[in-house]
Amino acid sequence: MRIGVVTFPGTLDDRDAARAVRLAGGEPIPLWHADADLRAVDAVVLPGGFSYGDYLRAGAISRFAPVMGSIIAAANGGLPVLGICNGFQILCEAHLLPGSMIKNDQLTFVCREQVLSVENADTAWTRDYTAGQKITVPLKNQDGQFVADEHTLDELEGEGRVVVRYQGWNPNGSRRDIAGITNAAGNVVGLMPHPEHAVEVGYGPDGVQGPRTGTDGLKFFTSVLHSLVG
């Protein structure tokens, strides 16, 4: 399975995302922001970082990159797309997901190992989890506060489109502790925390087997492979 990983100017986590795809059993395909060609990929990951310097607003300029025109069209046609951190912001700016992110409520950059609950285990990117499962993955951002109007939030809740929710502590003031959401079809998922940083023993968050043994993020990437093979 060919999983595209997009690099924008300022993307930081494309290597980690590609590595996560490989560890999950997929073939990572590098995609370039200025190239509209999706290279026949079966799914796309928009990694985190600071695309285009986050000038104007985080994700605002990336959203108009040539590759995004192709991704938006393909996502509307069912292509699985995962946006992580800055990638989540790009999906919101592209109107593939509702809402937006603003500065963390405590005004500081947050970097921690964050416990999440998987609320929706039916999306293309979460089907290998079980609903209600608690996972721990790194979180690192400054503009991580998810906001939307009350009507949109009620709609997300009512339709089961909250994919992951912060547990124990809301690190950024996100409305209703929302850490990630999906579109109505379940093929597009965006989240602020970083599952791609918790995929390999020795490099992840602390896990039950000891320091840095956590690999709770890997199932985002195995999920999409299983979605694609049906």
Binding site: L56, A60, F64, C92, G99, S100, I102, V147, A148, D149
Partner: peptide
């Protein structure tokens, strides 16, 4: 469309 985001 570009200079502002109507959500925020």
């Amino acid at each position: 469309t570009v200079l502002s985001n109507p959500v925020i």
